[in-house]
C-alpha cells in the first residue's frame, strides 16, 4: 500500500518541474522545425516547394512572381525547405503566435524590386 509515497515526497521536497512559460521562455532547440519563411529576394519561383509540399499549402505564381503560404495549413514538415534549390526557404525554431483571425502569408517578389505584404515574420 501507498507505494507512491516516496515519489510524491520526493516531488514535494524538490523544486517543481514546471517551466513557468510566459515568465521564463526556454530556448528552442537548434534545429526545431518552426514557422516557415521565404527570403523572397533569393526565390526563383520554381514551384518545387509547392509541388513537394504534402499539405499543399504553398502557392507559387511564376509569372506574377508571388509566393504564398497558408500558415494554417502548413504542417511544418520541412520538406519544402529540404527541396528548395536556392535554399531561400527557412524555418524558424518556433511556431507562429496564435491569432484571432486567419491570415495568409503573401509575398511578392521581383528580380529587382521586392515588396512584402502582410509579412508576419516579425510577430
Amino acid at each position: 500500500m501507498f507505494d507512491m509515497t516516496p515519489n510524491i515526497l520526493r516531488n514535494f521536497f524538490h523544486k517543481s518541474s514546471t517551466r513557468l512559460y510566459p515568465k521564463e521562455t526556454r530556448q528552442a532547440f537548434g534545429n526545431a522545425r518552426g514557422e516557415l519563411y521565404n527570403e523572397i529576394e533569393a526565390c526563383i519561383f520554381c514551384r518545387t516547394c509547392a509541388r513537394k509540399c504534402p499539405s499543399q499549402c504553398i502557392t507559387v505564381d511564376t509569372k506574377e512572381a508571388t509566393w504564398q503560404c497558408d500558415p494554417f495549413v502548413c504542417v511544418y514538415c520541412g520538406v519544402c525547405v529540404e527541396n528548395c534549390p536556392k535554399k531561400c526557404l527557412h524555418q524558424k525554431n518556433d511556431y507562429r503566435k496564435p491569432v484571432t483571425d486567419k491570415e495568409i502569408i503573401f509575398m511578392k517578389g521581383e528580380t529587382k524590386k521586392k515588396k512584402c505584404e502582410g509579412d508576419p515574420q516579425e510577430t
Partner: peptide, 29 residues
C-alpha cells in the same frame, strides 16, 4: 492522478529528445 502526472513528467524528457533530434516534439519526421 499523481501517477499520471509523474509519467507525463518523465515523458517530457523524451519529447525534448524528439525535438532536439528530429525537430518536432511529436512528429520527428
Amino acid at each position: 492522478e499523481s501517477l499520471f502526472m509523474q509519467c507525463w513528467k518523465i515523458r517530457e524528457k523524451i519529447m525534448d529528445i524528439n525535438e532536439a533530434t528530429g525537430g518536432n516534439r511529436v512528429n520527428p519526421s
